Simulated scan of single mutants.
Amino acid sequence: MRTGVPLQLTQRIQYLAYDPGVRPREGGLPGLEVLKKVMGSINLFGIVAVVGALAISALVWAWGHHSGGHQAEQNGKKGVTVAAGCALLLGAANGIVAFFSSMGTQVH
């Protein structure tokens, strides 16, 4: 009586394993070069903003240290750490995406 249940499960698994054949392809849509330039400009804007955030955080850290403001000192340290992490991620964005994209192509 329950022979239909495993068959439905098997069909669902086969459906999930179906390869639709979609692959990233350069030149498929117009405007790809413009989009790349826009993303590069946004990345550069982010890096410039991080430089400002890092400088301000370092100033707050120094001011807090020399004035005895422990709260300001801790916030400055936190800001420097966050800015450094953002700079790392912005600089490594292409590599991170390329790494996970290539890992994704290996999933079967």
Rank of each mutant, 00 (worst) to 15 (best):
T81D: 13
G91P: 04
A72R: 05
G21E: 05
G52E: 11
I96T: 12
M1C: 08
T105R: 10
Q11C: 00
H108N: 06
M103D: 05
A84Y: 03
V60T: 10
Q11F: 00
G79K: 01
I47M: 10
G76E: 02
V50S: 06
W61G: 03
M1L: 10
R2I: 12
G4Q: 15
W63Y: 11
V22C: 02
S102I: 10
G79Q: 05
P20N: 08
H108I: 07
A53P: 05
L44I: 06
T10P: 00
R12C: 00
L32H: 08
V60A: 09
K78Q: 14
L88D: 01
N94E: 15
G91V: 11
G52F: 15
V5M: 14
L32N: 06
N75I: 11
G40Y: 10
W63F: 11
T10A: 03
W61R: 11
T3R: 11
V97C: 07
V38N: 02
N94L: 14
I96H: 04
L88T: 10
Q106P: 00
Q74F: 11
V50G: 01
F99C: 06
Q8G: 06
L88W: 08
R2Q: 11
A87V: 08
T3G: 06
S101I: 04
T105A: 06
A17S: 09
L90W: 01
R2P: 09
S101P: 07
A49N: 11
G69M: 13
V22Q: 05
E33Y: 05
G21D: 02
L90A: 04
L29W: 00
P20H: 07
T105F: 03
A58W: 12
M1H: 12
A17K: 09
A55Q: 09
I56R: 06
S41W: 15
A58S: 15
L59E: 11
L59P: 03
W63K: 09
L88H: 00
V50N: 02
G95Y: 07
Q14P: 01
V107H: 01
F99R: 10
K78C: 08
G52Q: 08
R2L: 12
V34E: 06
